[in-house]
Design a protein around this nucleic acid. Sequence first.
DNA 1: GATGCCATGATTGTCGACACTTGGTTCGAT
DNA 2: ATCGAACCAAGTGTCGACAATCATGGCATC
Lengths: 228, 228
Amino acid sequence: MASTTAELLDEEASTIADRIFGQVRQAIVEGEIPAGSKISEPALAARYGISRGPLREAMRRLESTNLVERRPNLGARVITLSNDELLEIYVIREALEGMAARIAAERMPDAAIADLKNLLERHRREVARADWQTYFQQEGDLDFHFRIVQGSGNRRLIDILCNDLYHLARMYRCQFGMKSDRAADALKEHELVADAIAERDGELAEWLMRRHIRASRRAIERRLAVEG
Amino acid sequence: MASTTAELLDEEASTIADRIFGQVRQAIVEGEIPAGSKISEPALAARYGISRGPLREAMRRLESTNLVERRPNLGARVITLSNDELLEIYVIREALEGMAARIAAERMPDAAIADLKNLLERHRREVARADWQTYFQQEGDLDFHFRIVQGSGNRRLIDILCNDLYHLARMYRCQFGMKSDRAADALKEHELVADAIAERDGELAEWLMRRHIRASRRAIERRLAVEG
DNA sequence: GATGCCATGATTGTCGACACTTGGTTCGAT
DNA sequence: ATCGAACCAAGTGTCGACAATCATGGCATC
């Protein structure tokens, strides 16, 4: 499981600021630094054994990825995960990934489509085995979406989705252990999207992808309504 | 003409970094700092009479808005406006603003819709008068889109579109003086979108907005093909 | 007893200086 | 003459320290 999408967490960075950025991002996403907590620059700098300069740069990058909020003269806080924000993210994902699926159907290379189908085949075996771990299924879910977005070839689209929204989605999962009972349904929907892309039907691919993300959002809405 | 969308350029900032950020952003967007040019930190810092610290922070923020590119140990350059990038932006705008129009049709307050119609009424008079300036029409175009996006109430959506993409669009216009001969058509399409929103028809509003942005993109494609 | 003001502490914003990397130039060797 | 390596300059990355700002606590006053 060393070749999933999460590998961009600690890509070796030539500069200290980049390395610290990756480390503290992982710490925030995985909940090691709790959500809503205030971040003290001297404390964090001492914890990582660096000066405040690179740490401030890392904080700035974390702010640009919407993982921390900064107010002038007031410091930085890890964002608090509100339910509304989570649903907002799914709305944006519906729009952007729908478009990504449409373009991927038009421009994705045949080899990449074959890889995508192999990935889904593996996921199906994992789901069939009763012992599949929820974690793997969910990482696999991100992996599927990741490849579709890459298939669009739109660099800015890739940047928005992979550098901002996916990390936020992972953060939500780590916080409330979002165990999805929708795994089987989601896999089925993934296969439908992949089929539409393989048939080069952009219109259908977009429609299916939007329907898939909307279903995920509604599942979350139901759970939030139950848990209050 | 003091109440357009461009007012967030020099919002008074308590910190120097924020002020410099706004100033150099304006300088880049309006072409004062030419596209593709390398940015020297000491030079810019001296030019604005500040130290390198706040300037580096401003540069980082400019990088997060995709107006400059930074490579480690190599410095920052103003992005070069490639035609493909411009078209990519329109693809993203089609997806996001289409979704924004759909949600605005569902949730935009009646008063905001009335304001929107008044805005279009003003634009129609300006277009009818033969002496309307291209500049105003184009700023008005941004103003219309700005209000629709605001109407969605999705904060992250608003942030992506207003803080990143719109400034890029303005930059393109300032670079190649994008005089649109599509003003009359665009206004008509704006009115159709506004009507759909007024009728609370989200499906239609999204379809019309996407069609509108696609038409703008195709107009640019045609001009690029001609000018080669 | 409650409220407003002031002092204190801590934290952020800013600055100037130093170390390291990068790119170009020049000198030397083949 | 050309290729290669070492030298040099410019610029970025990093650091520690100073100044400005905000939060907290105590005190005086109403």
